[in-house]
Design a protein around this nucleic acid. Sequence first.
DNA 1: CTGAAAGCGCTTACAG
DNA 2: CTGAAAGCGCTTACAG
Lengths: 337, 337
Amino acid sequence: MKATTIYDVAKEAGVSIATVSNAINGKGKVSKKRREEILQVMERLNYQPSVIASALMGKKTYTIGLLIPDVSNPFFSEIARTVEDLAHSSGYSVIVCSTDNRDERVEKYIRLLEQKNVDGILIGTGLENAEILALLAEKSFPIVMIAREAAGISVHSVLTDDFRGGELAARYLLGKGHKRVAVLSENFKVSSSFERVRGFRFGLFEAGISLNPEEILSCESNIKDGKRAAAAIIRGSERPTALFCCNDLLAIGALQAAKEAGISVPEQLSIIGFDDTILSTVTNPTLTTIAQPMDQMVKLAFDLLIGSLDNADDIKQRIVMQPELVIRESTGSPPIE
Amino acid sequence: MKATTIYDVAKEAGVSIATVSNAINGKGKVSKKRREEILQVMERLNYQPSVIASALMGKKTYTIGLLIPDVSNPFFSEIARTVEDLAHSSGYSVIVCSTDNRDERVEKYIRLLEQKNVDGILIGTGLENAEILALLAEKSFPIVMIAREAAGISVHSVLTDDFRGGELAARYLLGKGHKRVAVLSENFKVSSSFERVRGFRFGLFEAGISLNPEEILSCESNIKDGKRAAAAIIRGSERPTALFCCNDLLAIGALQAAKEAGISVPEQLSIIGFDDTILSTVTNPTLTTIAQPMDQMVKLAFDLLIGSLDNADDIKQRIVMQPELVIRESTGSPPIE
DNA sequence: CTGAAAGCGCTTACAG
DNA sequence: CTGAAAGCGCTTACAG
């Protein structure tokens, strides 16, 4: 079943293919009557222009890439969904790429997306590798960072004030009366986590409380490793009364470790997460967490990307959004000594 | 920064573009020496063939579509991740399309994917609409159904024996001593849910227990609606001692409804889900559920799709996998009357 | 306002 | 074994 091409509609409408093309794209001058005729023929023949052919002529492919660490991680799958809807309603489709935060995957995907001539890329995965940054810098397609930074290359970025988020968590815990706290972080090379921890320490510092290095643990960002690391904290000689986790996955690991150790949350241990994913509403107790305004962030990032498509030299923006504390059940006052 | 084309490497290597093309694709005869030279030049020039141009010549686009109800739903995001990895390692990329089970979205996405010349589509969303089935039937690209059926069109499908899954749940509950049970289902028009309920009823029936229509509720497939529907069941005059939910999302809704009503799970009410998503390990109590062997299913489906790419007339298979009961904490014996 | 022609970057017979 | 040429389905000056 050969698809109908522009030639078929040209012949059927008794005009040249150039005129059909013009009618479709609203380019050149086509008389209203002709245009209508052509549109009707297109309808009748069920003609759909080939994106491939027009892409070859240097037009857009109407495809964008989305680079994230892992689609199966709820935080990112929620982002993916928002991106997809936005893209869809502007006529774009999105190729999803899970990087696992691994440089070789990032690089491979970037090359792949380039080969497919995507119009632009939304990046929500870490970009620390100098080689990759150099690779990206020489590309012609626009890039927008979302919830992450990319130092040294000229791109738009939309992020949350992670430092402030950490601070928010510290203040809240302090307000509840906690004095002995610990931190469970994702790998420090992930800049957002690093900032969250810095902010948290700063919040504590302002209240005259300092955090010893051994009270800050880091591990891979998944439930299992979070659980293991949290178990170590819980078993420690001086168990903290509150634990700040750099994301919900780690917080859930902590929740599980506490359950296994027979420590009740929040009565004996307060746990606070970050991201406000669907997971935080599903645990029991539900999770107090720091929310990023993801829908807005994705919307902003997407609009910046689409804007860059037509105007590559626009001034690169760095938009910083404010995080918010979402209080649920996993936090409370410290136990009375 | 113009990308280097086949002309550049041809000139640089002192051969014709035809020879370069042949060297790349291993077509025609190219002397070993020439081929190596060309490959070196390609390397040096950092040449990457344009997928677009070769797609226009009727070659593959190395892009597949994935149609699922919602990427942000953990069950599907886990599928998406597996598909992505499989695709990636075979040189394909995947365009993710969330349909929300809405016919107009399904249709729009199918047209979009066709326009983009995807090589094939993996469908994990319901396909009941006759118009859409007709649309699909006339398409030239291969389609593989995953965890869903598509009646009346010639496609491969890989599914779980949903009936058996329902039966498994019934047997297990029966074995625990439950006699008064209820069902919380997703919309019955979703065939997999319908089968699960049928299987569950059958399991009960074999033990001489029948289910009244009012003990089977259906609602939208999300936590909130599940919670609301479960609340109605719980408040009912004769509260069941066990509740079978057609998927984990609904089961979580039920868990929340129970918590809110002050009913303890599993002591006063056993709850069993379906799908074994990450969510079922995160709740408290953790969720007993019926697992589908998704990784295997996705792998099979993907391989069938890739196979169909080269051989469109292969005999369409219908592979049925066996579900498995995963016992966690949300189920137990019924309370003593 | 409309059409002939060139060209995008490839692949594929076909001729040599 | 290698290359000239046609063609995939479009778009874009350009001429009329």
